[in-house]
Design a protein around this nucleic acid. Structure first.
Lengths: 155, 155
DNA sequence: AAACAATCATTGACTTTTTCAATGATCCGT
DNA sequence: ACGGATCATTGAAAAAGTCAATGATTGTTT
């Protein structure tokens, strides 16, 4: 299994006080992870974001584009571009909103679901790779803390 | 104390399997944090990145621009721009590398250190705000896990 | 029911950020 | 001393982000 290309050992500057800044830690881990994820998804012609859209389209939650924008922290116009691409490739479709006819609901096609299954496996492997420095329990705890920081207690 | 402007409660889509993707969680928390941090730094004419550079310049570690680029996951040319700005404002200076005369060491000026002290206080408050959903122990644990995922065990 | 403001997806313009190749200076190994 | 590598810098090109305007539709107010 390949390992992170960058920062395989603690760099000198991590000693600085900024090495504990949550913002920087998030930025670095996110940057490193994006490289891994996009590499893993390249075989499928996907990137982190289009994969996220495809995943949600496959979720059965019938998200509107507005919901996708909010959830993925994107501008609505960026969602248009992402959905355009996936729709052109026959992986998702725009359906009319049920209560609100202004909204478009994004749903996966059968082909989209097949693609998603394969891409998901690659993503899981990439995530395992990225968190290879943590034990399974620690990985779970990290995800729990991230979720809690974002959305509160839950459970 | 102000609270996160976005996602004050769990959104509908968080239920999807993707709501556990480390990549997405990192992206979202990082995005939300950046907004907060940049808002906190705006009073000082700084942004997340220039603050990071200023912090490292104040650290006493005498980083070279190459080290800054590596540590901050930036292209060397982006570091040039950041240092240009801080230097123009008299907050940091470029010094000649000690062993390597190609390299430029970035050091803070007295004024830079004053600025950094004030900005640091604002950043600490922003971080507290961002992690207000976590207990102190959880915040510490989150930071530890992020560091470990990035740089391995260490202490 | 007519009018009004608000929201959704979309487009297009604009700015910012990222990426990358080329360059001169300097370093290191031979 | 030579040749290949690394550093900071520049500039160009590509990608991503931001934002206002628009038509369709909704909910609300009168």
């Amino acid at each position: 299994m390949a390992t992170l290309g960058t920062d395989v050992q603690t760099p000198r500057l991590a000693a600085a006080r900024i090495g504990s800044d949550v913002g920087l830690l998030l930025a670095k881990l996110h940057a490193a992870g994006s490289v891994l994820n996009n590499k893993a998804l390249a075989d499928f012609g996907l990137r982190e974001r289009s994969f996220s859209v495809l995943t949600l389209a496959c979720s059965g939650l019938e998200p509107t584009q507005r919901e996708l924008a909010d959830f993925l922290s994107l501008d609505p116009s960026q969602v248009v571009t992402l959905v355009d691409d996936l729709e052109r490739r026959g992986l998702v479709e725009r359906a009319q909103g049920k209560q609100d006819r202004r909204a478009k609901i994004i749903v996966s096609t059968a082909e989209g679901r097949k693609m998603h299954t394969k891409a998901r496996a690659a993503m899981d492997a990439a995530e395992l790779d990225q968190l290879s420095g943590l034990s399974d329990a620690e990985s779970q705890e990290l995800k729990r803390l991230l979720r809690k920081a974002l959305w509160g207690a839950a459970e």
